[in-house]
């Protein structure tokens, strides 16, 4: 057995041994194994991709939620502002109305008072005129008789007046 002369026996066994190993392993080991590896790699890739899309979706959802929230906040603010404005306006209106109504009532009262006053004055005037007329009439009646009776009459009237 020389070092650099290949022996026929070893060549024969090596050739058929190795080819046999190759055949068996290709059929029963490498084919299922490489297929399983491919399958696993693709499933890992798919899982990673799915996770990525889920993450993106989550981010989108979050952004959407935030947008919704911001919108809602904005709307709430505007509504509140509007309500405030309305209430301020309402109070103002009410105040103005009240002032107007008060002024009107005062005006009316004033007018009524004036009318009443005028009526009262007219009444007083009438009464004074009537009284003067009465007095004048009575004076005139007594003057016709004597001075004393005239004087008595006036005194009597004055007394009457005082009692009133």
């Amino acid at each position: 057995m020389d070092l650099i002369t290949p022996g026929t026996g070893l060549i024969f066994w090596q050739l058929f041994g190795f080819l046999g190993l190759l055949f068996i392993l290709i059929k029963f080991a490498w084919k299922p194994m490489l297929a399983a590896l491919d399958e696993r790699e693709s499933s890992i890739n798919n899982a990673l991709k799915a996770a990525e899309t889920a993450r993106n979706e989550m981010a989108n959802l979050k952004a959407e939620n935030e947008k919704l929230l911001a919108d809602a906040r904005l709307e709430r603010d505007t509504i509140l502002k509007k309500a405030q404005d309305v209430s301020v306006k309402m109070i103002d209106d009410a105040k103005n109305e009240a002032i107007k109504a008060g002024a009107l009532m005062i005006e009316n009262a004033k007018a009524v008072i004036e009318t009443e006053k005028k009526a009262a004055l007219a009444d007083v005037k009438n009464q004074v005129a009537e009284l003067s007329l009465d007095i004048t009439e009575k004076l005139l009646r007594k003057n016709l008789s004597d001075d004393k009776s005239q004087k008595d009459l006036v005194d009597g009237f004055i007394k009457e007046l005082k009692l009133n």
């Binding site: 022996g7 070893l10 066994w13 041994g17 080991a29």
Partner: peptide
Amino acid sequence: EFSITKNVVMLFIVLIVVAWLAL
């Protein structure tokens, strides 16, 4: 010659080890 020499036995051992591991 097709003798099962020392190296052929070694070859069989290696074939068995590799085949067993792979299978």
